[in-house]
Design a protein around this nucleic acid. Structure first.
Lengths: 354, 354
DNA sequence: CGAGGCTCAGTAAGCGCTTTCTACGAACCG
DNA sequence: CGGTTCGTAGAAAGCGCTTACTGAGCCTCG
């Protein structure tokens, strides 16, 4: 049933090589022949056999993108930016959902490597685990050796690897955001950190701590609460903050999604934002301006970072191996941060602790 | 650099057939031999060549999932359900983002077909366009002929095709939702339909119209507004409704995302939900209970639908070709719908029209 | 008018794997 | 002790494609 090149060739009365040439257009073929072949191609409903082509040509037309969470808009922006570049280079993008699991990340990298993907883009932050880094570095090495380009977008490639990286200035952004809060007069700040042992979380925490220290404030006098990067995590955290009547005038969420959750649950508990408590986000996702009040946040140039990563991955942009492209972060001051108000405990009418 | 089976065989002092057998474990191999081979495999850092294997075995280990929008939680739920089943069957899931484009949908189907994917799951609704249906039907036929199973999840497979379908009762759900609103006393309802010429939108509209007609109300006395399925579309629509001071006491959004947008923009304009205007959603996504007030919506069993689709796709569950599995919809009555209030125009202090 | 150049197309050698067929011992049995 | 069976592994034939390499015509030009 499935027609092969040979079938088409027979029907068109030519050799299979000619059919291949018509298909790929990389060698001259006389117009008349081309027409006959094209005809036969259509008549037989020919569909090229990808594996066979990939085997013979030692390359394929797929670009793999690894994302932590397909339903997180952060990755949506990244993935669609990369996809656009891939399409430009006639590659088709396949997105693999790792669910934030380090093992799945490796599994998919290996799968893509096995499939001889043209390139692999690993997006988002990753585990800070040494074993994982080492295994990742191994895979990167093998991939590069087999001609699969690897690009990291959102974290640095393992040291000494040939893979390029596009990284966002999480550290600087977090520091700037903290300085903004300090300038507004906040001193008691609750930080919802992202998932622990995660490069992105750590960089943001480190940036914030540095800004605090530089302002002469002991970072440990602030609250550091482990949370996730989802809206649900923010809702949960918001409820917890209120329940514990935490003594703070500002909450810095791990990202905008979390911030929107925090705001929703604070308001549901009667806490006004920003009158009672200021809330800040991170990333400047579309949701940041959908929320009421609009979020003060840190804008990461995700789209252009994705495009850069995509261009490196497709080879449109040639770079030195192991290059690290740094993308700046930029403060977006909007409505959700104001001068310190009564704080959480004040707002809900509980005795302020400490 | 890239070690092949033959390299491994040479190193282990066996034939490549033996190495293949060790790799696949489908033929008996003496323990001692196996050990030597395994050793060589590791020493040479062997990575199987997917295309070569796929070519020889005429099948691959990938399951493709087509989604309209990777960053829409509706598809997130679907994709992760399918992925779980795929993982169970030792297949790896690749998600392709079609951006709702009919052309991309076909392109990706063809890509997956070319790659000899084990199965393809097409999720979500699709264009009602005849040409597209026909081309889809063609591809399905070819896929099946080549041993790639095709499953539709969220819309029916083209007529007479071998592909299975898992469909959600959009029609019945929309009817039930409308009846709920009618029972609450609403008569002037604004419907934000999803994207036009889209199977899901149409089914929901048809269900609502039927319920209206059955209640003796002329469907055309209600407002039918084209919108999208995103939160942004809801925000936009909400603003429009207020701006035009539309005379209605209830808004039925295309889905929960849109509903959350509508609520946000209505409230931003000083309209109370549900006191002034009731708002209903569709799908019962996690966001439905995150929103304030919690959304009255229609629950679609997305997760179990996805699992079913996944099981059919992987072959875990054997079904007759062309089977259509229907999943029921279920009303979820929560806070966002109440008895009719002053309506939109009343709330914003504009003269009520008509 | 024959040599050299061009254009176009066929031949055939793989790409790296799976799998059938075959072969070789060793063990078993009557 | 010859013949059968069983367990194990090699030889080799593809899978469907790409791509040198080769060569047949035909044109051009000295």
């Amino acid at each position: 049933m499935a027609a092969t090149l040979a079938d088409v060739a027979a029907r068109a009365g030519v050799s299979s090589a000619t059919v291949s040439r018509v298909l790929n257009g990389n060698y001259p073929v006389a117009e008349a022949t081309r027409r006959r072949v094209t005809e036969a191609l259509r008549e037989l409903n020919y569909v090229v056999n990808g594996p066979a082509r990939a085997l013979a040509a030692a390359t394929s037309e797929v670009l793999g993108v690894l994302v932590n969470d397909v339903s997180d808009p952060f990755f949506g922006v990244l993935a669609s930016g990369i996809q656009r570049e891939a399409a430009e280079a006639d590659l088709l993008t396949m997105i693999c959902h790792t669910a934030g699991s380090a093992d799945d990340e490796l599994r998919y990298m290996e799968l893509l490597l096995r499939q001889r993907a043209r390139a692999i883009v690993v997006t988002g932050g990753g585990p800070e685990d040494g074993g994982h880094r080492r295994r990742t570095a191994d895979l990167v090495r093998q991939s590069v050796a087999r001609g699969t380009r690897v690009v990291f977008c959102g974290r640095e490639a393992p040291p000494d690897s040939e893979a390029a990286s596009v990284v966002f200035d999480n550290h600087g952004g977090a520091a700037a955001l903290t300085r903004l809060l300090l300038a507004a007069g906040h001193r008691r700040i609750a930080y919802l950190t992202g998932p622990p042992h995660h490069t992105t979380s750590s960089a943001r925490v480190a940036g914030a701590r540095q800004a605090l220290t530089e302002a002469g404030i002991d970072p440990d006098s602030c609250l550091w609460i482990r949370s996730g990067f989802s809206r649900a995590a923010g809702l949960e955290a918001g409820r917890e903050l209120v329940r514990a009547a935490v003594d703070c005038t500002a909450v810095v969420a791990g990202n905008d999604l979390t911030a929107s959750g925090v705001i929703a649950s604070l308001r549901a508990c009667g806490v006004r934002v920003p009158e009672d408590v200021s809330v800040a986000g991170f990333d400047d996702l579309p949701v940041a301006v959908d929320v009421v009040p609009e979020l003060t946040t840190v804008r990461l140039p995700l789209r252009s970072g994705a495009v850069t990563a995509g261009r490196i991955a497709t080879g449109t942009e040639r770079t030195a191996p192991g290059v690290v492209v740094r993308m700046p972060a930029e403060l977006r001051s909007r409505e959700s941060v104001a001068a310190p108000g009564g704080g959480l405990s004040g707002a809900v009418g509980l005795p302020r602790e400490r």
